[in-house]
Design a protein around this nucleic acid. Structure first.
Length: 579
DNA sequence: GCCGTTTTCGGCCCGACTGTTTTCAGTCG
């Protein structure tokens, strides 16, 4: 059973215990365990069998036993028992805004409401007001939420690229206002997560009311829900929730730290701070020994006050960063400026929108030292295939162009399809003429895990495959990764000297942050590419770098932070003979 | 239910808002 599926069992168990009125810390314990399991960098099933699963943070004796039973029987008995007690519709009710487990439980106990449908009928019949603690407003909000399909799961999350574009535009407009002293994007957009549920902006101002009013009037803002001197809650015309918070400049650091999150990071940070005698909130850091509250103008001061090194936003997921900040072992994260060459992009020869000349000029503009043109290969569909003769002609053209182009090296490459049996769809003698070969899967996504893993490993064993493109094939929120053993392919990558890609296309970001951490832990080396299909998408490498940073990567672990000569020497075909 | 350079028992983050209340529980971020 995969870690993600195991985690779902424990999230469900937490929901059920919550409905059952269990002590909240128990519920939190199951949720923490679920998170830990989801992000574990080894198979939790294997760890359980090896009796090592309690090494995971948040997994103790009881949860280890439940894991054991889950793997033996496919079920957790406690969950089975609770499921017979509470109908599945109750959990759905807890997802409605304003409804949590306590209120859902009350509805069930008092009126026998067991589903969203029951709830709608009771609200329409004005029966909710019979229950203490519920009134006409509750009935109204139920109907509004149900009509709008407003529960959390149906509300779409926005892809980071789109979310950041909106956030940057709003932040930019705010910065122009005379009352704005500092404006920053906070929340998940600042942590560069794959998607964002909503946007958080924070501002420092000596005239909050004026700034709040100006924000409410921005053209992007569709509807203002509440507005005051503390901030504004609003929704854009396309339905994105925006939270702007405003404080005085003296505590801007506290606010930014608080609203950057993640919740898990802040919880852990505060727990840690309490042990050291500090209470941290968005307004300041209270020192218990003196009773004084320190306002911090910068985030650095917040972390320093409680004895921690500064933690980059991308690391704030409670994945070990607090311990590392205490020990002084935080990694020095790779930066966009460290990337020296593009190794995966397309031209009009396959499905790109720009010529090789245009792509090259754009890459030089970005400060790159080299660019590999990697159009699709012979078996690629949609009329975008490149037959062997055409690739030969293109390679000759690239050699010519490279000879008369200054300031950047142009490499002849290909993104070659890995066929279902693990072979490639060009002959070896053709591949040998190229400078750079990426192997990618573009077909037969539904193979079983073992077969798919073997297919990819076979491709990596090919002496001319330099890197694997978008290794898990996921499309964020649209297509699940194909069944593949990430740890096994990472080991194979390390063994064969094949690089694994972080594809920077904001729809892909593949490998993911969690997977890339697994990959480098077993010794694989990464390349970060844009997979640009036009000059304007070459900067997408920033999303790849963000994923790398979220996976704790340093520049050394990324091959294309090196010069082409150094990279060439590092790869399996080796440099000595070719230098 | 988990966890331990103050603890193997007794803790476990913080503040605001909302709707329902005469002082607050539940929810949210």
């Amino acid at each position: 059973m995969r870690n993600a599926e195991v985690a779902l069992h424990f999230d469900e168990l937490a929901d059920l215990y919550e409905l059952d009125g269990a002590v909240s810390y128990r519920v939190i314990a199951y949720r923490n365990a679920a998170k830990s399991i989801r992000e574990a960098n080894a198979s939790v099933e294997e760890m359980t069998k090896a009796r090592r699963v309690t090494e995971l943070a948040g997994v103790g004796k009881t949860i280890a036993e439940k894991l054991q039973v889950l793997f033996e029987t496919g079920e957790i008995p406690a969950a089975q028992k609770l499921k017979s007690k509470y109908p599945p519709g109750l959990v759905e009710i807890t997802r409605l805004p304003g409804f949590g487990p306590k209120r859902a439980r009350k509805l069930f106990d008092e009126l026998g409401i067991a589903s969203l449908d029951d709830l709608r009928k009771a609200a329409e019949a004005e029966r909710l007001r019979e229950i203490p603690g519920f009134g006409p407003k509750a009935e109204e909000s139920v109907l509004v939420a149900l009509d709008a399909g407003l529960d959390d799961r149906t509300k779409p999350r926005l892809l980071l690229s789109r979310a950041r574009a909106i956030a940057e535009s709003l932040a930019g407009a705010l910065r122009e206002h005379p009352a704005a002293e500092r404006v920053e994007i906070a929340g998940s957009a600042r942590r560069w997560t794959d998607t964002c549920k909503d946007l958080d902006l924070v501002a420092a101002s000596s005239d909050p009311a004026a700034l709040a009013e100006a924000f409410s009037g921005l053209p992007l803002i569709g509807e203002v829900h509440s507005s005051g001197t503390a901030g504004v809650r609003a929704v854009t015309h396309n339905g994105m929730s925006i939270d702007l918070r405003i404080v005085g400049p003296e505590s801007f650091g506290n606010l930014l730290q608080h609203f950057t999150g993640s919740n898990k990071h802040n919880e852990a940070l505060r727990t840690d701070a309490v042990r050291r005698g500090f209470h941290v909130s968005e307004y300041g850091v209270v020192d218990d020994s003196t009773g004084t509250s320190h306002a911090c103008a910068t985030e650095e001061e917040v972390y320093e006050l409680i004895g921690l090194r500064y933690i980059e936003p991308e690391l704030r997921e409670n994945r070990g960063e607090l311990q590392a900040a205490r020990d002084g072992t935080l990694p020095e994260l790779v930066r966009v400026e460290d990337i020296r060459g593009e190794l995966h992009c397309h031209s009009t020869t396959s499905d790109g929108r720009n010529t090789i000349e245009e792509m090259t000029a754009a890459a030089r503009e970005l400060g790159y030292e080299y660019i590999a043109i990697t159009d699709h290969s012979a078996s690629h569909g949609f009329g975008n295939d490149v037959q062997p003769d055409e690739l030969r002609r293109q390679t000759e053209r690239i050699r010519e162009l490279d000879a008369r182009t200054d300031g950047i090296r142009i490499l002849a490459g290909s993104e070659v399809n890995v066929l279902p049996d693990g072979s490639l769809d060009y002959e070896d003698d053709l591949l040998a003429e190229l400078d750079w070969v990426i192997g990618s899967l573009h077909s037969s996504f539904r193979m079983g895990e073992q077969e798919q893993t073997e297919r990819m490993i076979k491709a990596m064993e090919h002496p001319l495959v330099d890197a694997i493109g978008h290794p898990t094939g996921r499309l964020i929120d649209r297509r699940r990764p194909y069944a593949i053993d990430v740890e096994a392919i990472s080991r194979a990558a390390a063994r064969t000297g094949t690089f694994l890609e972080i594809n920077g296309n904001p729809d892909r970001r593949d490998l993911s942050d969690v997977n890339v951490r697994i990959a480098v832990e077993v010794g694989a080396t990464i390349v970060i590419d844009s997979d640009g299909h036009g000059t304007e998408t070459l900067p997408n490498v920033q999303y790849g770098v963000a994923t790398a940073r979220r996976g704790w990567l340093t520049a050394t672990q990324v091959a294309n932070t090196r010069s082409w000569e150094e990279l060439d020497a590092l790869r399996k075909r080796g440099a000595p003979a070719r230098a």
